[in-house]
Simulated assay, not measured.
Amino acid sequence: MFTGIITDIGEIVSLTPTAQGQLHRLRIACRYDRATIADGASIACNGVCLTVVASGVAADKTWFDVDAGAETLAMTTAKHWATGTKLNLERALKIGDELGGHIVAGHADGVATVVKHDSLPDMARFELSTTRELARFIATKGSVTLDGVSLTVNTVADIAFSVLIIPHTLNVTTLGGWRAGTEVNLEVDLMARYAARLSEMK
Protein backbone atom coordinates (compact mmCIF):
# COMPACT_ATOMS: atom_id res chain seq x y z
CA MET A 1 0.00 0.00 0.00
CA PHE A 2 1.05 3.57 -0.74
CA THR A 3 -0.32 7.09 -0.26
CA GLY A 4 0.67 8.87 -3.47
CA ILE A 5 3.18 11.10 -1.65
CA ILE A 6 6.41 10.99 -3.67
CA THR A 7 9.63 10.61 -1.66
CA ASP A 8 12.23 10.63 -4.44
CA ILE A 9 12.71 10.93 -8.19
CA GLY A 10 14.63 7.97 -9.59
CA GLU A 11 16.28 7.52 -12.96
CA ILE A 12 16.46 4.38 -15.09
CA VAL A 13 20.17 3.68 -15.65
CA SER A 14 19.74 0.42 -17.54
CA LEU A 15 16.94 -1.56 -19.14
CA THR A 16 17.27 -5.13 -20.37
CA PRO A 17 14.35 -6.69 -22.28
CA THR A 18 14.03 -10.45 -22.67
CA ALA A 19 14.20 -12.01 -26.10
CA GLN A 20 10.43 -12.53 -26.05
CA GLY A 21 9.72 -8.97 -24.87
CA GLN A 22 7.65 -10.33 -21.98
CA LEU A 23 9.83 -8.94 -19.19
CA HIS A 24 12.02 -5.89 -18.70
CA ARG A 25 14.73 -5.80 -16.01
CA LEU A 26 15.15 -2.19 -14.88
CA ARG A 27 17.93 -0.70 -12.80
CA ILE A 28 16.84 2.51 -11.10
CA ALA A 29 19.18 4.95 -9.36
CA CYS A 30 17.78 6.81 -6.34
CA ARG A 31 18.69 8.65 -3.14
CA TYR A 32 17.28 6.05 -0.74
CA ASP A 33 19.64 4.55 1.83
CA ARG A 34 20.78 1.20 0.44
CA ALA A 35 20.54 -0.35 3.92
CA THR A 36 16.78 0.28 3.96
CA ILE A 37 16.03 -1.55 0.70
CA ALA A 38 15.45 -5.27 1.10
CA ASP A 39 15.04 -7.82 -1.66
CA GLY A 40 11.30 -8.37 -2.07
CA ALA A 41 10.42 -4.83 -0.99
CA SER A 42 7.72 -2.96 -2.92
CA ILE A 43 8.51 0.42 -4.48
CA ALA A 44 5.98 2.35 -6.56
CA CYS A 45 7.61 3.61 -9.76
CA ASN A 46 5.42 6.20 -11.50
CA GLY A 47 2.52 4.64 -9.65
CA VAL A 48 3.35 1.04 -10.58
CA CYS A 49 4.14 -1.26 -7.65
CA LEU A 50 7.30 -3.20 -8.52
CA THR A 51 9.29 -5.71 -6.47
CA VAL A 52 12.96 -5.18 -5.69
CA VAL A 53 15.04 -8.15 -6.87
CA ALA A 54 18.51 -6.69 -6.17
CA SER A 55 20.09 -3.49 -4.89
CA GLY A 56 23.47 -1.92 -4.33
CA VAL A 57 25.57 1.21 -4.52
CA ALA A 58 27.57 2.51 -7.49
CA ALA A 59 29.37 5.85 -7.73
CA ASP A 60 27.92 6.85 -4.36
CA LYS A 61 24.39 6.35 -5.71
CA THR A 62 21.94 3.69 -4.51
CA TRP A 63 20.37 1.51 -7.19
CA PHE A 64 17.73 -1.20 -7.19
CA ASP A 65 16.56 -3.67 -9.83
CA VAL A 66 12.93 -4.50 -10.61
CA ASP A 67 11.18 -6.57 -13.25
CA ALA A 68 8.27 -5.20 -15.32
CA GLY A 69 6.21 -8.10 -16.65
CA ALA A 70 3.98 -8.43 -19.71
CA GLU A 71 0.83 -7.16 -17.95
CA THR A 72 2.64 -4.08 -16.64
CA LEU A 73 4.11 -3.36 -20.07
CA ALA A 74 0.69 -3.73 -21.70
CA MET A 75 -1.35 -1.69 -19.18
CA THR A 76 1.00 1.17 -18.23
CA THR A 77 3.49 3.64 -19.62
CA ALA A 78 6.30 1.25 -18.65
CA LYS A 79 6.38 0.14 -22.29
CA HIS A 80 7.77 3.59 -23.14
CA TRP A 81 10.38 3.74 -20.39
CA ALA A 82 14.01 3.90 -21.45
CA THR A 83 17.45 4.63 -20.04
CA GLY A 84 17.29 8.15 -18.64
CA THR A 85 13.55 8.12 -17.88
CA LYS A 86 12.79 9.86 -14.58
CA LEU A 87 10.33 8.09 -12.26
CA ASN A 88 8.34 9.22 -9.24
CA LEU A 89 9.22 6.86 -6.38
CA GLU A 90 7.40 5.95 -3.18
CA ARG A 91 8.30 3.33 -0.60
CA ALA A 92 5.56 1.03 0.73
CA LEU A 93 3.70 2.18 3.84
CA LYS A 94 4.84 1.06 7.28
CA ILE A 95 2.66 0.88 10.38
CA GLY A 96 2.70 4.32 11.94
CA ASP A 97 3.45 6.25 8.73
CA GLU A 98 1.46 9.40 8.06
CA LEU A 99 -1.35 8.87 5.55
CA GLY A 100 -0.85 12.15 3.72
CA GLY A 101 -2.50 11.40 0.38
CA HIS A 102 -5.07 8.63 -0.07
CA ILE A 103 -4.97 4.84 -0.12
CA VAL A 104 -3.09 3.81 -3.27
CA ALA A 105 -2.57 0.17 -4.28
CA GLY A 106 0.12 0.76 -6.88
CA HIS A 107 -1.94 -1.22 -9.40
CA ALA A 108 -2.37 1.19 -12.31
CA ASP A 109 -5.75 0.76 -14.00
CA GLY A 110 -4.64 2.20 -17.30
CA VAL A 111 -3.36 5.33 -18.96
CA ALA A 112 -4.56 8.94 -19.13
CA THR A 113 -3.33 11.40 -21.74
CA VAL A 114 -2.55 15.05 -21.10
CA VAL A 115 -4.78 17.14 -23.35
CA LYS A 116 -3.83 20.62 -22.18
CA HIS A 117 -1.34 22.30 -19.85
CA ASP A 118 -2.12 25.77 -18.49
CA SER A 119 0.48 27.70 -16.50
CA LEU A 120 -1.34 29.67 -13.80
CA PRO A 121 0.02 32.05 -11.14
CA ASP A 122 1.96 29.82 -8.72
CA MET A 123 0.50 26.56 -10.06
CA ALA A 124 -0.32 24.51 -13.15
CA ARG A 125 -3.57 23.09 -14.46
CA PHE A 126 -3.63 19.90 -16.48
CA GLU A 127 -6.58 18.59 -18.43
CA LEU A 128 -6.44 14.87 -19.19
CA SER A 129 -8.60 12.28 -20.91
CA THR A 130 -8.94 8.56 -20.35
CA THR A 131 -11.14 5.66 -21.44
CA ARG A 132 -14.87 5.74 -20.79
CA GLU A 133 -14.49 2.62 -18.64
CA LEU A 134 -12.12 4.42 -16.24
CA ALA A 135 -13.73 7.86 -16.49
CA ARG A 136 -16.86 6.58 -14.69
CA PHE A 137 -14.76 6.19 -11.52
CA ILE A 138 -13.54 9.81 -11.58
CA ALA A 139 -15.54 12.47 -9.75
CA THR A 140 -15.09 16.15 -8.93
CA LYS A 141 -13.30 16.53 -5.57
CA GLY A 142 -12.45 12.83 -5.66
CA SER A 143 -8.95 11.37 -5.66
CA VAL A 144 -6.87 9.98 -8.51
CA THR A 145 -3.28 8.82 -8.72
CA LEU A 146 -1.34 10.05 -11.75
CA ASP A 147 2.19 8.72 -12.26
CA GLY A 148 2.14 7.80 -8.59
CA VAL A 149 1.04 11.22 -7.30
CA SER A 150 -2.12 11.55 -5.19
CA LEU A 151 -4.21 14.37 -6.66
CA THR A 152 -7.67 15.87 -6.18
CA VAL A 153 -9.89 16.07 -9.25
CA ASN A 154 -10.82 19.66 -10.07
CA THR A 155 -13.38 19.22 -12.86
CA VAL A 156 -14.91 16.37 -14.85
CA ALA A 157 -16.52 16.50 -18.31
CA ASP A 158 -17.38 13.19 -19.97
CA ILE A 159 -14.04 11.33 -20.33
CA ALA A 160 -11.95 14.43 -19.54
CA PHE A 161 -10.90 15.68 -16.11
CA SER A 162 -8.56 18.31 -14.72
CA VAL A 163 -6.19 18.64 -11.78
CA LEU A 164 -4.42 21.65 -10.25
CA ILE A 165 -0.78 21.20 -9.23
CA ILE A 166 0.81 23.36 -6.53
CA PRO A 167 4.47 24.52 -6.80
CA HIS A 168 5.72 22.03 -4.21
CA THR A 169 4.35 19.07 -6.19
CA LEU A 170 5.81 20.47 -9.42
CA ASN A 171 9.21 20.75 -7.71
CA VAL A 172 9.40 17.29 -6.11
CA THR A 173 7.83 15.17 -8.88
CA THR A 174 8.10 14.75 -12.64
CA LEU A 175 4.74 16.46 -13.28
CA GLY A 176 6.40 19.72 -14.30
CA GLY A 177 7.58 17.96 -17.45
CA TRP A 178 4.09 16.97 -18.63
CA ARG A 179 3.00 18.39 -21.98
CA ALA A 180 0.02 17.86 -24.31
CA GLY A 181 0.23 14.27 -25.52
CA THR A 182 2.10 12.94 -22.46
CA GLU A 183 0.75 9.58 -21.31
CA VAL A 184 0.60 8.98 -17.56
CA ASN A 185 -0.32 6.03 -15.37
CA LEU A 186 -3.79 6.31 -13.85
CA GLU A 187 -5.08 4.56 -10.75
CA VAL A 188 -8.66 5.37 -9.81
CA ASP A 189 -9.76 5.69 -6.21
CA LEU A 190 -10.33 2.28 -4.61
CA MET A 191 -13.44 3.58 -2.84
CA ALA A 192 -14.98 4.63 -6.16
CA ARG A 193 -14.28 1.22 -7.66
CA TYR A 194 -15.91 -0.64 -4.77
CA ALA A 195 -18.88 1.73 -4.70
CA ALA A 196 -19.45 1.12 -8.42
CA ARG A 197 -19.25 -2.63 -7.92
CA LEU A 198 -21.77 -2.56 -5.06
CA SER A 199 -24.12 -0.48 -7.20
CA GLU A 200 -23.89 -3.00 -10.04
CA MET A 201 -24.90 -5.85 -7.72
CA LYS A 202 -28.14 -4.24 -6.52
Rank of each mutant, 00 (worst) to 15 (best):
T3A: 09
I5S: 04
I6Y: 09
V13L: 07
S14D: 15
S14P: 08
L15I: 09
T16W: 01
T16S: 05
T18P: 06
Q20S: 14
Q22M: 04
L23V: 05
H24Q: 10
R25C: 10
L26R: 03
Y32R: 04
A35I: 09
I37G: 05
G40E: 07
G40L: 12
I43S: 10
A44N: 12
N46L: 08
N46I: 04
V48T: 15
L50N: 08
T51I: 12
V53I: 15
A54D: 15
G56S: 11
A59C: 06
D60A: 13
D60G: 05
W63N: 04
W63Y: 12
F64C: 06
A68C: 10
A70P: 02
E71C: 05
L73Q: 00
A74T: 11
M75P: 02
T77P: 02
A78K: 08
H80R: 05
W81C: 04
T83A: 08
K86F: 00
K86D: 01
K86W: 03
L87H: 05
N88C: 08
E90Q: 07
A92C: 07
G96V: 12
D97P: 06
G100Q: 03
G100R: 02
H102Y: 01
H107E: 00
H107W: 00
H107K: 04
A112W: 01
T113D: 07
V115G: 01
K116S: 07
R125Q: 12
R125E: 13
F126C: 01
E127D: 04
L128I: 02
S129I: 00
T131C: 00
R132E: 06
L134M: 07
A135R: 07
A135L: 02
K141S: 10
S143N: 03
V144S: 05
V144D: 05
V149I: 15
V149R: 11
S150P: 01
T155G: 03
T155A: 15
T155R: 13
V156S: 11
I159V: 15
I159S: 13
V163T: 12
L164V: 14
I165E: 12
I166A: 14
T169C: 11
V172A: 14
T173M: 11
T174F: 12
L175S: 09
W178Q: 14
R179M: 15
A180M: 13
A180K: 10
A180L: 13
E183K: 15
V184K: 05
L186Q: 11
L186H: 12
E187G: 10
E187R: 08
E187C: 09
E187H: 09
V188F: 11
V188N: 09
V188D: 10
D189L: 11
L190Y: 07
M191I: 15
A192F: 06
A196T: 14
A196R: 08
R197A: 14
R197Q: 13
L198Y: 13
L198I: 13
S199H: 13
M201A: 15
K202A: 13
K202W: 08
